[in-house]
Design a protein around this nucleic acid. Structure first.
Length: 427
RNA sequence: GCCGAGGUCGCAUAGUCUGGUAUUGCGCGGGAUUGCUAAUCCCGUUCCUUUGGAAUCGUGAGUUCAAAUCUCACCCUCGGCGCCA
């Protein structure tokens, strides 16, 4: 959420930034917010005038009562004021809700380096690292490989849970754990605290961390309770400090979240959905940082380096793109996507690195102070970056490290986590 | 799930029985005063159209001219019991 006062005071600048998104709907919404805010404040003033009158008369009643004078007439008067006030107040409440709703849908202000573009095809490549091995035979895709090795079962998963679910078996399940543990150890060395979060969140904190549309398209709702299955550990980590005031002396606070992620994937028709790429449930290690506003751009690059170093260690070729205005979403001020190279020669997204500046923190009411005993200085900045989504990473591990006989070489750094195993072969 | 205690401004605290300006301290910001490691005093520290107003006591509803205070429902925290991997 943007600061309504910023919108009021620097209207032209905010509008200009939003205009870079080349989305008329957003500007219309912005203009609607301006209009609604003006109306709201006008009504607020009227309500306050009525309250003033009522309060004054109430005080008068108290005074007359103490002086043992007649106050019945005043009560009749104040009753009338009270009615007008109640009506006006109801109006005000509606206006406020409308304004708030609109404001929540205004996207974050973007960093100047975000490229202008319509959709993901306009994302700007920043770098490209590593390349595919020369196979000398026609490489298979990960799903064929895994099925032949007997380490995945989708048919039985479909039988019991439906499309988009899998049983990972034997070495593939082991590989999943190996990746997770390797990543955790890696991030802990870089100062992150491991977090195992709740896998469900209430609606209120959830509204703070994500786009409202996600409730329809992404999240699973638990029927009998006010609970949603998390779509990423970013969400419970962001909400961790909801309504708190953090001490800047503790900054940056670096969390490494580990959790399964649940996604309905409504509206993903036509996208690449092969095998492990798009699932209703997958495991992910996530980097999350709360920091001082002055540091967030530096830390954004640092988080990027972390995940690149991970892919380098795993010997997986990747590229980084600077996500363009049309593909950025509403929460991030800037976003890098990391894409890994799969055996069909396509780069596909495996993680995204967002600096949300104060947008998420304002929604969640996470503020900070410069030190103990200091007064509140503003909203913290939050950043999140995937470290490893195991499912998508395993696609590259299987495809890129396959041998002609269908066996899979395990990268050196993961071997200690696989009980020293160097190769996945059919049992 | 049951029983008990609790939730008051950034922090801490009084007020709740008996409805009538939300108390005090700390911190923070600004100002005054004072020659000296400091002390003291004043104003502010949520919002608005700021010579003035309004809101705010976990949330929501109700009673009332008037609710932190009374009533109802709900949420959360802590303690105890129960169930349980």
């Amino acid at each position: 959420m943007l600061d309504i006062r910023l919108i009021r005071e620097k209207t032209a600048e905010v509008r200009k930034n939003l205009a870079r998104r080349k989305d008329k709907g957003i500007l219309d919404r912005f203009d609607a917010v301006l209009k609604k805010d003006e109306k709201y404040r006008k009504t607020l003033y009227q309500v306050e005038q009525l309250r003033k009158e009522r309060n004054a008369k109430s005080l008068l009643i108290n005074k007359l009562k103490k002086e043992k004078k007649d106050f019945k007439k005043v009560i009749l008067e104040v009753k009338k004021v009270g009615q007008d006030q109640a009506k006006k107040e109801e109006e005000l409440l509606k206006m406020k809700a409308g304004l708030w709703n609109e404001l929540l849908r205004i996207p974050n202000l973007m960093h100047e380096s975000v490229p202008v573009g319509k959709d993901e095809n306009d994302n700007k490549e920043v770098k490209r690292v590593g390349k595919l091995p020369k196979f000398g035979f026609k490489p298979k895709n990960h799903f064929e490989l895994a099925e032949a090795l007997g380490i995945i079962d989708s048919e039985r998963a479909n039988k019991v849970a439906g499309h988009g679910f899998f049983y990972l078996k034997g070495d593939l399940a082991m590989l999943d754990f190996a990746l997770q543990k390797f990543t955790i150890d890696f991030l802990v060395k870089r100062g992150f605290m491991v977090i195992e979060p709740p896998l469900m969140l209430r609606r209120k904190p959830y509204e703070g961390v994500t786009d409202l549309d996600d409730f329809e398209n992404v999240m699973y709702k638990i029927d009998k309770d006010d609970l949603y299955l998390i779509a990423t550990s970013e969400h419970p980590m962001a909400a961790y400090y909801m309504n708190e005031v953090l001490n800047a002396k503790e900054f940056p606070i670096k969390f490494c979240g580990i959790s399964p992620c649940f996604r309905r994937e409504v509206g993903s028709h036509g996208k690449y959905t092969k095998g492990l790429f798009r699932m209703h449930q997958f495991n992910k290690i996530e980097q999350f940082v709360f920091c001082h506003p002055k540091d967030s751009w530096k830390i954004h690059e640092e988080l990027q380096k972390n995940c690149e170093d991970l892919y380098k260690a795993l010997e997986i070729p990747y590229r980084v793109v600077n996500v363009c205005t049309g593909d950025l979403g509403i929460i991030a001020a800037k976003k890098y996507d990391t894409e890994i190279l799969m055996a069909d020669g396509q780069y596909r997204e495996v993680g995204s690195n967002s600096n949300c500046t104060d947008y998420q923190a304002r929604r969640l009411n996470i503020r900070y102070k410069e030190g103990e005993g200091k007064t509140v200085a503003g909203f913290a900045h939050t950043l999140n970056n995937t470290a490893i989504a195991t499912s998508r990473t395993m696609i590259a591990l299987l495809e890129n490290n396959q041998n002609k006989d269908g066996s899979i070489n395990i990268p050196k750094v993961l071997q200690p986590y696989m009980n020293g195993k160097k190769k996945i072969v059919k049992n």
